[in-house]
Design a protein around this nucleic acid. Structure first.
Lengths: 259, 259
DNA sequence: TTATTATTGACTGAATGTGATTGATTATGA
DNA sequence: TCATAATCAATCACATTCAGTCAATAATAA
């Protein structure tokens, strides 16, 4: 159990980093009542360390500049964020999950930090480094050779270690998804690692923004049948929808709301 | 029975290390009453050595602008930098080296970036993440469980993978070096990993600033005999010098020039 | 020895931190 | 617009922790 000072420090740090947080989120993260979080937030607001909103709080600095400007500037990033948020909703307290390396799965890391009990396997040095300050998350790295292009750990060491592990859910990125050629990625060794990931998970959740559709790259690492759930960000072809439905792949389309 | 000054020193040291402590825990640890601990804590707070909370105390945040503190930190960092620079001088183009996790070996990462051909094995997610933009450096991560306290990957996965590898030189940090108790570290699992590192390297180079001397922590991972070269930053006891010489351990002392 | 001082532990009423409750307020969407 | 759900501030009750007081003990000096 944390002291209130510690909790407030962490809340402040969290909001500085993520720019915002909801009361509910913080309740779950620190396992205290709403009353406590509200008290903390109002005290932090008194100290001008954050700004209170209905339902949560936001960082002080984000009050200063127009949020819409920067948010719109990085629409691509927002799409990946949306996909990640949806993906995170399938994670439950106590789960053992696998998170593939790559930019699509990266926002997922921020979404899982407030879980109070989670085991995360990841072959990304960036992902694991971001989790180094979340001691409640058990992080396991399968090791391997660092591919500088993708910052992923790949190769025989990775595959061999992964084959000793089993996870509840695997969140996997892909460079291409195509009805006839399945899931593909440009690198042979990386494909092998992704294949191992798929085989070691009870549930396979693939994350892919719309740019990956009907794209085929060099090395195949999986079929449509291997996927249990597919999360993307834009209305996709009817052909994909019906094929996914027919093969029992659940399809999540997270639409970016225009304003 | 301890004198109050001794007890306060120990309380301060404990909180510096663990960042927090409860009154209850300190009572049990020192076998004194709550009143005594509370008195100690308020005196330590008066001296700005910790921050009091309800139920205990926490370490002073690093957001401390007291000049002496930052100066000390700078100096400490400089010493580690010097040790790292000296350590890097033993690396040759084309080498396969192992770099242990920890703050002492961290500056070494910056020193090796200019090599045009190097294979680096490291069990630190921070170290490997820093090398992600140096494509000419082949980085191999042995994987394992992330210890949040030290950002090191440790455990059976790490040990098993390491035992499949062999390196020319291993740069290893330590928490304590003592003539009779050898090399020690507070964590048993970390000790096991360090032991494996030593066994898989042709040459073992230990990096330790002066604060580690004559210090013994919980778990032993090596003897003086295991070391080939020892790099430190301050004139050490004659006892160490002669013992090292006798056992064939090369000793490098990198002195910080005062200005 | 005795006197003096510092340290400690026990005690007590006060203060603090927390969760639960409730009726009021605010946001959201039909 | 209104209805509904979410969120809020205010309040209470309970447990924990606190500061302050005082007597007992230990260390030190006369």
């Amino acid at each position: 159990m944390l002291y209130s000072e510690e909790r407030k420090n962490k809340i402040h740090a969290y909001i500085e980093k993520h720019k915002r947080a909801s009361v509910q989120h913080l309740c779950d993260a620190f396992n205290v009542s709403e009353s406590t979080i509200r008290r903390d937030l109002s005290e932090l607001e008194q100290d001008h360390l954050l700004r209170r909103t209905h339902g949560g709080a936001i960082a002080i600095e984000s009050v200063n500049f127009e949020p819409t400007v920067t948010e719109k500037a990085d629409r691509f990033q927002m799409e990946k964020q949306l996909i990640a948020t949806r993906a995170a909703s399938y994670i439950q307290e106590g789960d053992t999950i696998l998170i593939d390396a790559g930019t699509t799965t990266l926002p997922l890391i921020h979404e899982i930090k407030h879980f109070s009990s989670l085991t995360v396997v990841t072959n990304s040095v960036v992902h694991s480094e971001l989790l180094k300050d979340s001691p409640q998350i058990e992080v396991v790295v399968p090791g391997g050779r660092l591919r500088h292009e993708t910052q992923a750990l790949v190769g025989p060491i990775t595959d061999q270690t992964l084959s000793l592990l089993h996870v509840d859910k695997a969140f996997i990125g892909t460079n291409g998804i195509d009805l006839s050629d399945g899931l593909t990625t440009p690198n042979l060794i990386e494909a092998s690692t992704k294949r191992t990931m798929i085989s070691q998970s009870s549930e396979v959740i693939v994350l892919a923004d719309h740019s990956k559709f009907e794209k085929v790259t060099f090395a195949k690492f999986g079929d449509i049948d291997d996927i249990h759930r597919f999360i993307t960000d834009e209305q996709v072809d009817q052909a994909f929808v019906s094929e996914f439905h027919q093969r029992g792949v659940k399809l999540d389309i997270v639409l970016l709301q225009e304003d």
